[in-house]
Design a protein around this nucleic acid. Structure first.
Lengths: 338, 338
DNA sequence: GTGAAAGCGCTAACAT
DNA sequence: ATGTTAGCGCTTTCAC
C-alpha cells in the first residue's frame, strides 16, 4: 500500500508553500494564484499522482460532500429507480451518496441513521416508510437536513416527496368500475407504513363514492410471498364474491397473480388484478400488470432538489411535494365475471 | 444546525482528559480504563448526545471503515442481490459501503474510482465488466485493495469472484439438446465484457461438442431493449432455421420474449428461450424464464470475504473464486419444432 | 501573490 | 489508570 501523497509533497516538488497548492488546486480559490504557479502546481500534483484526502478536507471545512440515503429494501426494484434519480441529480453537484439498505429492520434503521450521522453526511434522504418518532427525534437533534420519501411527514417538520396516491387509487378503481367490477378486495400493506395507510384510506373513499363493495385484507410485509399468502387465504374461503384485487404495491399484486394461478384460475378472466408503482418489469409479468405508474426517478430527483435546498437554508421548510401519477392498463385487468 | 459535540466537551463534563474519553468509548481500549470512569464518561457522552466524528478518527487512524462498490447498473436486479450479500457480510464488521452506480459509462467509472479513492475507502469491489486497463492501473498505484466480481482478472492481479459460466452454459445447452434443439442462436453481450466473451466461448464449445448448429449475434448492451432489437432482426430474416435462443443474460432473454410475442410467435411452442443469471422475477415473466441460477448473494458475500482478506494481508493474492451454478427449468423452454 | 501559523476532532506514543 | 503531547492532511485567516 503505497503511502498517500500529501499536499506538502506536491508543494515541495512545485517549490511553493502547501497553502499555495491548496489554493491552486481548489477551483474556487484558483483565481487568486498566479497562473504560472497554478500550472506548476498542477503538473507537480499530476506527476506525483496526488489525490486529495477528502476526510482531512472535510474535517477542516465541516462538509463531507456526502449525503445518506436510507431505503427499506434494495431488492424492491422501485428503490433503484429512485436512487438513480437521486444520484443523477447529486453526482454532478459533487456529492457522493452513502446508501443504507436496512432490509425492513427498524433497529437496523436506527443504526444506519447514527452511522450516517457519524460519517458527517451533509444531508439525509429517508425512504423507509416506518414512522418511528424516536428515530426522527434523535435525528432532529443532530441538525442534519432531512428529506422524506413516501413517508408520513405529519409530525416531523421535514419535507416530503411522494406520488399522488389518492389520484392513483382513484384512477385504478375507476378503471375497475368501468370494467364492471362491483366487489373488490384491497390487499393493504402493513399499517405502520404511512403509504399503506394512505392507499387503504383512498380506496375506501373511492369505493364508497361508487358504491363498490370493498374488503380490505392486510399483508405483513410488502413482498411477493405475503401477497401470495394473503390471496391464497382469500381464494380458499368458500364463498368468494369479489371479482378484482387492488394491491397496495406491485409486489403484492405479483403474489396475487401467483396465487390465482395456483388455484387454477385465470387472470383477468376470473379475477382482475391491479397493482401500484408500475415497477420495472411490471410489463413482463404473466399477465402484464395493470398498475399505477409512479414517477420514481422524478421522485428521486425532487427529493435531491429539496435536500439541496434544505442544506442551503440550514433547515428546510417542511414542504410536501406530490408528483402526479397515471394508470397503465395492461393485461391483468378485464371485464368482471360473476 | 446544532454544532457538533466534541470529545473534549464530554471530557469536561465527565471531569477527565479527552484521551480518557476516547479510550473509554472505544471498545478495544476500554479495558484499560477504570470501570467507574467508563460509566461516568458514557453517561456524559449520552447526556450530551455525543456522536464521534468518523472523519476525524479516520484522519488519525488512516482507516475509513468504508468500502466502495462500483456497479454498472443498479437497475439490473442482479446487482441489488450482490450488494445485499456484500452489505450483509460487511455491515456487522463495522464497514459502511459507498455505492457507485456508473450506469455503464466508462468515463463515469473512472470518476467513481477516483472519487472513492479520495474518500479513503479501505477497499473496493468492482462489478463493472469492462476491462479498461488504464483504470485498473491507476487503481493499482493507489494501493487500495480490490476484488473483482464477474470480470476478467487476467492482467490485474486482483482476486475475482464469479459464477461458473462454463458449467451454466453447458447445462443449458444440454437441456436444449435433450429437447431436440439442433439449431441455436446465442445472443451475446458486448464483447468488451469478459463475462459476455466467456459465455460466448463456452457456448461455442458446448455446441461443437454436441454438433449443434450455432449462430451468435451481438447485443450492444445488456438491456431488454437490445435483446428485443436483436431478436426482431433475427425474426425478420426470411429463412429462420433456429428453434432456440440462448441469451447471455436474462435481460436479453426478456427482450427476446418480447420480440417473439410481437412477431405473433409463441414461446416455447415456436421458439425456446433460455437466459442466464436467474434474476429476481425471472419466474414471473411470461412465460417463466428458464435460466441459469447464479448465486448472486453468495457472490457478494464471497467478494466481501476476499476483500477483508486483501485488506488484512495488505494486498490480496490474486485468487479466482468460481461459484457453482445450476439450471432452473421453467416454461420458456420446450421441445423443438421444425 | 504567497508564506506562516493555527486548528478542524480525534487517537496513539509517551510520561506519570 | 490517566494526563500530556503531537500530529493525521487539509484549509483559512492573517501577515507580508
Amino acid at each position: 500500500m503505497s503511502r498517500q501523497v500529501t499536499i506538502s509533497e506536491v508543494a515541495k516538488l512545485a517549490g511553493v508553500h502547501p497553502s499555495t497548492v491548496s489554493r491552486a488546486l481548489n477551483p474556487a480559490t484558483r483565481s487568486v494564484v498566479n497562473e504560472k504557479t497554478v500550472r506548476r502546481v498542477k503538473s507537480a500534483a499530476e506527476s506525483l499522482n496526488y489525490v486529495p484526502n477528502i476526510m482531512a478536507r472535510g474535517l477542516r471545512t465541516r462538509l463531507s460532500m456526502t449525503i445518506g440515503v436510507i431505503i427499506p429494501d434494495l431488492t424492491n426494484p422501485i428503490f433503484p429507480a429512485i436512487i438513480r434519480g437521486i444520484e443523477g441529480h447529486l453526482g454532478p453537484l459533487g456529492y457522493t451518496t452513502l446508501l443504507a439498505d436496512v432490509d425492513g429492520d427498524t433497529a437496523l434503521e436506527g443504526h444506519a441513521i447514527s452511522s450516517l450521522v457519524q460519517r458527517q453526511v451533509d444531508g439525509l434522504i429517508i425512504a423507509t416508510g416506518v414512522e418511528q418518532s424516536s428515530l426522527v427525534k434523535a435525528l432532529a437533534q443532530s441538525g442534519v437536513p432531512v428529506v422524506l420519501v413516501n413517508r408520513g411527514a405529519s409530525e416531523t417538520g421535514y419535507s416530503l416527496v411522494t406520488g399522488d396516491d389518492e389520484m392513483g387509487i382513484r384512477a385504478s378503481v375507476n378503471h375497475l368500475h368501468q370494467l364492471g367490477h362491483r366487489d373488490i378486495v384491497h390487499i393493504a400493506g402493513p399499517q405502520s407504513f404511512s403509504t399503506s395507510r394512505g392507499r387503504a384510506d383512498a380506496i375506501r373513499r373511492a369505493c364508497d363514492d361508487r358504491s363498490i363493495n370493498l374488503k380490505t385484507v392486510y399483508a405483513e410485509a410488502l413482498t411477493v410471498e405475503q401477497g401470495e399468502m394473503v390471496t391464497n387465504r382469500l381464494l380458499t374461503e368458500s364463498n368468494r364474491s369479489f371479482t378484482a384485487i387492488q394491491a397496495s404495491t406491485d409486489l403484492l399484486a405479483l403474489g396475487a397473480l401467483r396465487a390465482i394461478r395456483q388455484h387454477g384460475l385465470i387472470c383477468p378472466d376470473d379475477i382482475s388484478v391491479s397493482g401500484f408503482n408500475d415497477m420495472p418489469f411490471a410489463e413482463e409479468f404473466s399477465p402484464g400488470l395493470t398498475s399505477v405508474r409512479v414517477p420514481l426517478e422524478e421522485i428521486g430527483i425532487e427529493a435531491a432538489t429539496q435536500l439541496m435546498r434544505a442544506i442551503k437554508d440550514g433547515r428546510g421548510s417542511s414542504l410536501v411535494v406530490t408528483l402526479p401519477v397515471s394508470l397503465v392498463i395492461r393485461a391483468s385487468t378485464g371485464p368482471a365475471t360473476i
